[in-house]
Design a protein around this nucleic acid. Structure first.
Lengths: 207, 207
DNA sequence: ACCTGAACACCGTTCAAGT
DNA sequence: ACCTGAACACCGTTCAAGT
């Protein structure tokens, strides 16, 4: 049975997904649901509570992370990619959850999934914990940065423009022309992920 | 000569630094400056324009990045650390600049500084560009994630709580107890930075 | 139990009127 | 050239009054 509260939360979530939290107005929400704007308060208490409920619904929907691949390295990689994929798909909601400090619900399942694969790779104790947190931060952090980039893709070309004007003998010319061509976030993620996985595997072999 | 406009921008910047953009209200700002709230519009046009001016002032204040250390690796490391330091010191303003898509002003000087050191390390062309962007993303992304964490430090303990309840034979026990103790962002940054630098140096030696 | 309408305290912005 | 005050269209929230 879907309650009126559920309908309100679903509509609010739609507004957040479409335009970020700032687009969530109690009055517009009420208009969309064809009720007086004050009616909403009977169901959700306040705008902050409503935002909390939207995040709850989102976190509940977040699927489990199931690693794929045969080697521990491939499986760690798949978990990191899966985290990234989930987060990319729900940028607005993830940004909101982060803003609101909802880290446990957001990241704990991913942490556990990573912990299993890192254990399988043979890492233990503090070293294993550092591997887990590095991978977690990597996936989470890159996505937040990317979200900011994508929302302002039109301004990326300004950086490219600036690079065109650089004349510095200490900078490799090939590097300069590359920077002046721009780059895509996904491949930067892949590179950094490879680097961190190399580092982790080196540790696991060192034991 | 400091104009009335400068005074307004400075006061607005103070409000943003203290409480984020949401804390910047034209009416409160006017009250602080002891003028009618409508007077501000003569000098800055609109709230959005004012926010733009606040970011401009911040970016102009951002110091140059001067690498330290003798080996290329140490110098790249120092640049990454310096980016992080600058950003950590001005979390609210950096977050605002990112939100507004002001990437060029925010990151271009850092990119150039990194490009010099990566060139000095012997990397060239596309490979060098990937090294620069990895380091840049790393510093920028981690800081944004950290900013979110720090603002909600009280809730970090909830994750720690969750770890305590985990009973999974596939997860190393030492890893589990480590995760249940929490971790600090700075050392995660250091770890990941080492990993990326290892990866870069391996490439530079491969040539 | 659920909804409405009036009311209050906030916003950003415009504009005629003052000096 | 610079400031004020009234006015408008938006907010979130409370609460008495209705069914």
């Amino acid at each position: 049975m879907i309650s009126e509260r559920d309908r309100i939360v679903a509509a609010a979530r739609g507004m957040v997904e479409a335009g970020g939290v700032d687009a969530l107005s109690m009055r517009k929400l009420a208009a969309e649901l064809d009720v007086a704007h004050t009616a909403i308060y009977w169901h959700v208490g306040s705008r902050d509570e409503l935002i909390g409920a939207v995040i709850d619904a989102f976190l509940a929907d977040l699927g489990d992370i199931t690693p794929t691949g045969r080697t521990p390295r491939a499986r760690m990689e798949s978990v990191a990619r899966e985290i990234r994929r989930q987060v990319v798909e729900h940028r607005a909601l993830v940004a909101l959850a982060m803003e609101q400090g909802r880290f446990p619900g957001m990241w704990f399942p991913a942490q556990v999934a990573l912990a299993r694969e890192v254990s399988a790779a043979g890492l233990k104790g503090a070293e294993a914990a550092r591997a887990v947190t590095s991978l977690l931060y990597l996936a989470g952090a890159f996505v937040m940065l990317e979200a900011a980039f994508e929302e302002h893709a039109h301004e990326a070309h300004a950086t490219v423009e600036l690079w065109r004007g650089v004349e510095d003998p200490r900078i490799d010319r090939g590097l300069k022309t590359r920077m002046a061509r721009g780059f895509d976030a996904a491949s930067v993620f892949e590179d950094t992920l490879e680097a961190v996985l190399d580092w982790i595997m080196a540790k696991s072999e060192g034991d």
